[in-house]
Amino acid sequence: MSSVLVLAAVPIVLAAGLLALMKVPTNIQLTVTETALVIEPQGLDSWWTWRDRIEVPVAAVASIRIGPRTEAPPLPHRRGGLNIDGIITAGPHGNTFWDVRRGDQLLIIKCLPGAEFETLVLQFANPFATLTRTRTVLAHQPQRA
């Protein structure tokens, strides 16, 4: 009888563990090179988003700003990524790439037509510092002068 209880508890424990892992903050590295913004989901984020790396050419960046979730593009009815309302939105959803947990102050990167994604919606522990650092580096790029 005790083995039946253990087997019955396994899915519950796995589901609880999965939900706990989804509450872990995003783990994204954003680097600005001479030619591109490089977004690299780290650890579990590469699994949630189904991507290890996204490169957005500097010339394709239209704008970068902080905005609430309500200003991000709506999720399409036919979704391509992971979405559990209010817990995690990750991966490509139509022409938008997401890596967001419960946060509301999000880094929203709009791209010019022809880029892999129209918009990237990313959550950072300190989005204002990330925005300032990214804009500072982009301002010093020869292509943006």
Rank of each mutant, 00 (worst) to 15 (best):
S2L: 15
V4D: 15
A8K: 08
A8L: 14
V10P: 08
I12D: 12
L14P: 09
A15G: 13
A16V: 15
L18K: 04
P25F: 00
P25V: 04
T26S: 03
N27R: 13
I28F: 02
Q29M: 02
L30I: 09
T31G: 03
V32I: 11
T33H: 13
V38I: 15
I39C: 01
Q42C: 08
G43D: 09
L44H: 04
D45Q: 02
D45G: 02
S46H: 08
W47D: 04
R51E: 10
I54P: 03
P57T: 15
V58R: 06
V58I: 14
V61E: 09
S63A: 15
R65M: 11
I66R: 03
E71V: 07
P73Q: 10
P73L: 10
P74T: 13
P74L: 11
R78Q: 11
G81T: 02
G81L: 01
L82K: 00
L82N: 00
N83G: 03
I84S: 05
G86P: 11
I87A: 02
I87P: 03
I88M: 02
I88C: 02
T89I: 06
A90R: 03
A90C: 07
A90P: 06
G91N: 00
H93Q: 08
N95D: 08
N95I: 03
T96G: 05
F97I: 04
W98H: 01
Q105K: 12
L106A: 05
L106K: 03
L107M: 14
C111S: 05
L112E: 12
P113E: 11
A115G: 09
E118D: 05
A125L: 12
N126L: 05
P127Q: 12
F128D: 15
L131S: 06
T134H: 11
T134P: 12
T134N: 12
T136E: 14
T136C: 10
A139K: 11
Q141A: 14
Q141K: 15
P142G: 13
R144W: 11
A145E: 15
